[in-house]
Amino acid sequence: MTKVAVLGAGSWGTALSIVLADNGHDVRLWTHRHEQAEAINRTHKNEQYLDAGIPEQIKAFHSMEKAISDVSAIVIVVPTKAIREVCSELDKTLKNPVTIVHATKGIEPESLKRVSQIIGEEMTDYDYEDVVVLSGPSHAEEVGKRQPTTVTVSSINSQNAAFAQDLFINESFRVYTSNDMVGIELGGALKNIIALGAGISDGLGYGDNAKAALITRGLAEIARLGASLGASPLTFLGLPGVGDLIVTCTSPHSRNWRAGNLLGKGEKLDEVLEQMGMVVEGVRTTKAAYQFASDQQIEMPITEGLYEILFNDKKPKDVVEQLMSRDKRDEMDDIASFLRASYAK
């Protein structure tokens, strides 16, 4: 049995807590809201975020100091915009060495930092090389019901990655390892952009042809940006790439797909975010990826189109027409360049 603190009591943090409890670990689930911690301990449910029973061995805390006391591992599952604040508080409170795992899928706008880099900046005794990232095609709703799920963990510190694999793996939650931490983090973050686009496509009433093209060309954009930041393009053919794209672009469980679907039906971004009631990471990630692509002159037409819809109030149909009328080119150009980059590594 390992003592584990999970920071973040949203749907994904709750689902991962259930996995850890099923594995016999002593799990402490931290939330910044006192009333939420009390409700979880009283009812063993977290109904606002996840329709699943919470095992009684999971204890919810409002006090971070109590939640992390004497734990061996800390799993960070808060939205990207809260990472710095939470890690700053954690840095002041943490007294003993731990393994840090994060399962947040996003990129910080302006700085363009990955989550592991943000953690490394905010934590005095932890560099980003020590952090483990957990990512892959994994709807919290299905994980909470113990439906078969596969994810990947990665860290520059291979011992920490192996520890995280052992911590989470069980008969319904299979965990692979990877040595491409950059690719794993970027795949998990950037797929949210394409999921917004898939939702918009469905909201506009387009069919499977359009969605298949969007997913495929979206994957090319993810690999193009990822390779420019040092990731292996082949990583995006795995679970955190193709796998996560499929699950987030095709399922109403995906909050990014749901948000995009409402946008495609004509609703405004502010209205959509208010309706969702949960963080839609793809919105902030679109801004970050658009900024980076512009600065580095990386071709990302789908991301650019989504940026225009989200932040410049451009009509989705106009963006589709713009994408469909782009200059002719050979599809194999991307694939050939990706293979060359992979062999070079």
Rank of each mutant, 00 (worst) to 15 (best):
113 K>M: 15
140 A>W: 09
132 V>T: 03
101 V>Y: 01
167 L>M: 11
17 S>D: 11
50 L>A: 06
287 K>N: 06
170 N>G: 10
93 T>M: 01
223 A>V: 02
313 D>L: 07
10 G>I: 11
21 A>P: 02
137 P>A: 01
122 E>D: 13
192 N>K: 03
119 I>N: 10
246 I>E: 09
103 A>C: 06
127 D>E: 14
90 L>T: 01
265 K>I: 10
40 I>L: 04
226 G>D: 04
77 V>L: 10
87 C>A: 12
242 V>I: 15
318 D>H: 14
110 E>L: 12
17 S>F: 09
169 I>Y: 05
93 T>R: 05
45 K>F: 07
52 A>E: 13
326 R>V: 07
239 L>K: 07
25 H>S: 05
315 K>H: 15
241 G>T: 13
146 R>I: 01
218 G>V: 02
343 Y>A: 11
176 Y>T: 11
334 D>E: 08
56 E>P: 07
146 R>M: 05
323 L>P: 03
26 D>T: 13
336 A>P: 06
37 A>S: 14
77 V>S: 11
96 N>H: 15
108 E>D: 12
160 N>T: 12
271 E>N: 13
241 G>C: 09
96 N>T: 15
278 M>K: 09
275 Q>P: 05
345 K>W: 03
268 K>Y: 10
111 S>A: 13
81 K>R: 13
204 L>S: 07
120 G>A: 03
68 I>C: 06
8 G>C: 03
168 F>H: 01
261 N>Y: 15
295 D>C: 09
271 E>S: 14
216 T>L: 04
141 E>T: 14
